[in-house]
Design a protein around this nucleic acid. Structure first.
Length: 389
RNA sequence: GGGGAGGUGGCGCAAUUGGUUAGCGCUCCGGACUGUCGAUCCGGUGGUCGCGGGUUCGAAUCCCGUCCUCCCCG
């Protein structure tokens, strides 16, 4: 139905807002890229190392994934940019013809904090593989993403930790802003979009200032970063709200790393269009299934004899062919098929969830849909669940 | 028949020349995981130390008997 290539559709960067919800900030959109359109709100499966773990591009296409992620840091280390250039970029390399968004390595500043030193012009990393030193700053990160040929490149930012003191947060945001301006000046691959990233931690004024200054620079889209790094849920959603509030309405908005269904729904109602998260795939590898009503451990002993599918009523390949007992067995004995089947199911559930959300917005029933979702996923209301830091 | 080694939670083992509520790995059960350092991390259940006596303030550790397993020799 929708055009698959840029030739058939609109120019990369065009963001059509097809519908706006009457009661919330939710909107239905379509973002055009060099590899076709993305219907929003969208969930983007994470394929850090040029693969969405356990899934083939064919699986993803069949399940309706319209855009996936790649990662600057990881692909720079392995296979390296010589290989990527020789193989014609990330799309050709991994056999994926739909849009790709690449993260800049900014998250690794956070997740690999014991292996890096932050400098004025970028970050000095020590490879987590062999300890080799290398430098990633705005020009470097953008050059990598240009070689990868991603449809959407993210600015190189500093994802700051939580908790974080105000003074450090302020300096960090200054750095992220100056880096963002530099990223915008770098050369891009054909049709490549560049998104800015709002930081600021839990500080309202910082979030707002960061968002406003980025907006003034004129990016193709904007992300809220630095959330889901260990803060309580209410702090996280507040951070999203503070950032989104000051971003231009007509551009796509993306909350990085968010993947909890309830949190995504809340973010959509604040006007967010895009998400990515490792959780459906990672949790699948650990033997847990996502369903409409939450998660449950398929690996649990109580499903040893269970003949039902992983989720009753689900139409995915896993659920239409195999039982919980079988999937549990495979997971339990460490067979790769178990990981694959559960990943298929979880991804199917996630993409289906987003499809239902889009339909709810299209059919003017998003508010009700959101309420019924909250009743199931947060029956006790929005409790802030502090996580171990 | 003779000699040797050994019996400790479901499995494999540990316990310093007898000394606090007998430890560990795996299994099992449960939890966590949010721009991924794939296959991780954190908890928990479970043993009257083969059985019966004895020595001792105190025995998984020493002694006697007994049952069982493995190895070697006839």
């Amino acid at each position: 139905m929708q055009p698959r290539t840029a030739e058939e559709g609109l120019a990369p960067g065009v963001f059509e807002i097809l519908k706006e919800d009457r009661h919330t900030g939710a909107r239905l959109g379509r973002l055009w890229t060099a590899h076709g359109a993305v219907e929003t709100p969208v969930f983007m499966p994470v394929g850090t190392q040029a693969t969405v773990k356990a899934l083939e591009p064919r699986d993803l296409e069949e399940m309706g994934a319209s855009v996936i992620l790649g990662n600057t840091y990881h692909l720079l280390l392995r296979p390296g940019m010589e290989v990527m250039a020789a193989c014609g970029g990330l799309h050709r390399f991994m056999g994926w013809s739909r849009p790709i968004l690449t993260d800049s390595g900014g998250f690794q500043v956070f997740s690999l904090n014991n292996l890096r030193k932050i400098r004025a012009h970028g970050v000095e990393f020590r490879s987590h593989i062999d300890g080799a030193k290398f430098f990633l700053g705005p020009p470097e990160a953008m050059a990598v993403q240009r070689t990868l040929g991603s449809d959407i490149a993210m600015c190189f930012d500093e994802c700051m930790p939580y908790p974080c003191d105000a003074q450090y947060a302020c300096q960090s945001v200054d750095k992220t802003l100056s880096w963002a301006a530099l990223c915008l000046q770098q050369e891009r691959s054909p049709g490549q979009l560049v998104f800015g990233i709002v930081q600021g931690g839990e500080f309202v004024a910082l979030r707002e200032r960061c968002a406003r200054e980025l907006a003034a620079m004129g990016f193709d889209g904007y992300a809220v970063g630095g959330v889901s790094v260990g803060e309580p849920e209410d702090v996280m959603l507040k951070g999203v709200e503070d950032g989104v509030r000051c971003l231009p309405r007509e551009r796509p908005r993306y909350v990085m790393g968010l993947g909890d269904m309830f949190q995504m729904c809340e973010s959509v109602s604040l006007g967010v269009d895009m998400f990515d998260c490792v959780i459906p795939t990672r949790v699948a590898r650990h033997g847990t299934a996502y369903t409409r009503t939450g998660t449950y451990p398929v690996k649990g002993g109580s499903y040893k004899m269970d003949q039902r599918p992983v989720e009753e009523g689900c139409t995915c390949y896993c659920c239409s062919h195999f039982s919980r007992a079988y999937v549990r067995h495979l997971i339990n004995v460490g067979e790769i098929l178990g990981v694959r089947l559960l990943t298929i199911h979880n991804m199917h559930r996630y993409l289906g969830f987003m499809r239902e959300m889009r339909e709810a917005i299209a059919n003017d029933c998003f508010r009700e849909w959101r309420q019924s979702l909250a009743a199931v996923l947060r029956p006790d209301g929005l409790k802030s669940r502090a996580k171990s830091v």
